[in-house]
């Protein structure tokens, strides 16, 4: 067991609770998951720790999802606080939510936007879109066909005709999508 049994401190729990909205029970559970993923027992996760989860490793966007955690931390390790902040994006939204929570519609959309925005310039270019499409379909669809899918998608949502999709345009395009439901995980209490 060793250092693994190091426990969460009360104040840490309540701080995370305030920041993310998870209940303390959920935080304790997720902490136990975090320590399980943390094979090196150092209190943080690396990319390889995430990709050891087979179901994530075969996810076509697995790399992008893992990347989201490292964007949060801006280093090559993710601690529990940062881990929880990213997970918080996937908490269900309550109907009359207060503003500026990590799990509101805008945060969820930002998360989805970043899946496409590979270089982090807040724009989805045609190349980036093509790249992500390629991740999702592999070699099953030809580059030409993917190109026409990308062109069609951009022309549909690109309002200012700059051949890129900005976050605003992305939000507009997702207007009719039930993001709250599709980006929410049913956490048990």
């Amino acid at each position: 067991m060793g250092t693994r049994s190091s426990m969460l401190q009360e104040e840490e729990i309540s701080e995370i609770q305030r920041e993310t909205g998870f209940s303390s029970n959920q935080i304790v559970r997720l902490y136990s998951r975090f320590t399980n993923l943390d094979k090196s027992d150092q209190g943080f996760l690396r990319r390889a720790d995430f990709l050891r989860i087979p179901e994530l490793a075969i996810n076509p966007l697995g790399d992008r999802i893992v990347h989201a955690f490292f964007q949060e931390s801006a280093t090559d390790t993710v601690n529990f606080r940062q881990f929880m902040r990213v997970l918080a994006r996937f908490r269900p939204v309550k109907k009359n939510a207060t503003k500026n929570k990590l799990n509101d519609r805008e945060e969820k959309l930002k998360f989805a936007f970043k899946m496409y925005d590979l270089d982090g310039d807040n724009m989805i270019s045609r190349d980036e879109l093509l790249n992500v499409l390629h991740m999702m379909v592999g070699a099953n669809i030809s580059d030409d066909q993917l190109g026409s899918i990308a062109d069609r998608t951009i022309s549909e949502v690109d309002l200012d005709k700059d051949e890129n999709i900005s976050f605003e345009e992305f939000v507009k395009a997702m207007e009719r999508v039930d993001v709250e439901q599709k980006m929410s995980i049913r956490f048990l209490n």
């Binding site: 899946m115 999702m136 999508v177 599709k182 980006m183």
Partner: peptide
Amino acid sequence: LSDVLYFS
């Protein structure tokens, strides 16, 4: 564009 939501 929303297809990524499923995968995420």
